[in-house]
Design a protein around this nucleic acid. Structure first.
Lengths: 248, 248
DNA sequence: CAGTGGTCTAGACCACGTC
DNA sequence: ACGTGGTCTAGACCACTGT
């Protein structure tokens, strides 16, 4: 067994995909299926390596990739944990509106409505469901330092989140709610940003003059497997704050 | 020498910073100082390892990090190259405006002016120079598919780019020009985005009604060492295009 | 064919956190 | 003292690119 072998449990089929990617895929699947929940400690590198019959270095490479993708958090001396959607983390990963003066903070939310309705064509297209499939529509206003800054419209598939429309107490941090209550982890997304005149309703909610310029952030958020989960449109007043993007 | 030693050429001083980071820092410095130019092939892992007296694995870890940071491009069987600011690469890294319909394309540019002037307080603050220091101001209009879409104001330090104001033929791709002509590699940056009414001048340039909403993209771009190099404000008409941001 | 990066392994030591 | 992740090394084989 010294010099090469490679006939381990994994690594047999038409050997596309390197071993560490197969390990990674397996671990992602376990997280997605709830075997380990957000915040939980997963087995050590050595244990995983022994279980799968690969070397520690291969497991490490898989874990390193997942750490870069914000799926895991590693702590020397303690172990490796499944990433959580706590506010501090979400602040930079998903909430990029920062005040022009002062520190970034997580916004407060004021829920306006949460209703179930058949998905229209646009909603169905973004969520990857059939037109007319049951959907949940949420409207809320988010504030920074007590000032309303964002009017937000969110749509998800009711099939993925049964009973959510009836929940009278939707929390501020929705992504943590998706994860804790439904085992749906938001892992990434895509945002398209435009400038346009505020609709009358949004202008009123944000305390702006009619047709004042607002930032539209049109987001589709995706789960661990890349499937679309949420379509969100945020109309944002940017008098005293900005959307922050880091280039590298 | 078999079991541990670690007294190589590097790795002596108060051993903060792991070896592979020291290797990385050295290689970044060499690129920054022009020892290897963009597009050029750098020595193989084995050669670098031998030169520095470290193992191939350590060099590899340094090169891998630099590849993730878009400083290097690796090609199996060929070698490792210093990254270039070619249009295809810049398209996703620095130019995030994409048409709502059709493929992303690199914009054409129409230079309006390029003048040297003393930096005002705002310019000096963004560029890290003293107020009144010589600066170069560029104004241009950028178009997609023949339609003017962005009115852009750029400011750099004249000390970093001597003679640039006199160059009558500034190219479309400024970051490639900075690199080729002055050895200044733009490696990252930070953008703050707002929605606001277009100034009369910009509205005219973009063919918009007075005070129509435009996207302001306020960017500070930084060199390999993290020093600010360019301050750029792009006023963007987003009727038929959007700023695209990928979350992960 | 030789040379390059890509993958995988095995084992050593280090730094940190916990008991 | 023990277990965890973090670093470093050494060497094997694989896959690709050039000659």
């Amino acid at each position: 067994m010294k010099t090469r072998d490679q006939g381990s449990a994994l690594r047999k089929a038409p050997h596309f995909a390197p071993l560490y990617r197969q390990v990674r895929a397996l671990l992602v699947q376990r997280i997605a299926r709830g075997r380990w929940r957000p915040g939980e400690l997963i087995p050590s590198e050595i244990q995983i390596a022994a279980e799968l019959g690969v070397s520690q270095g291969t497991v490490r490479k898989a874990l390193d990739e997942m750490t870069v993708e914000n799926l895991l958090v590693r702590q020397q001396g303690r172990g490796t944990f499944v990433a959580q959607h706590d506010e501090a983390r979400i602040l930079f990963q998903f909430f990029k509106i920062v005040p022009d003066a002062g520190e970034p903070v997580f916004p407060e939310s004021d829920l306006r409505s949460c209703l179930e309705a058949p998905a229209d064509a646009a909603e169905a297209g973004h969520l990857g469901v059939k037109t007319g499939a049951p959907a949940i529509r949420i409207a809320r206003v988010r504030s920074l330092a007590g000032r309303p800054v964002i009017s937000e419209y969110i749509c998800v598939s009711a099939a993925l989140f049964p009973g959510m429309a009836a929940d009278g107490a939707l929390p501020n941090n929705l992504y943590a709610y998706y994860a804790d209550r439904y085992g749906v982890t938001i892992a990434g997304g895509r945002e398209r940003i435009k400038a346009l005149p505020a609709a009358p309703e949004d202008a009123a909610l944000l305390g702006l003059p009619a047709a004042a310029p607002v930032l539209l952030i049109d987001r589709v958020a995706t789960a661990l497997d890349g499937a679309p989960v949420e379509w969100r449109r945020s109309y944002c007043a940017t008098e005293a704050c900005s959307y922050l993007s880091i280039l590298r």
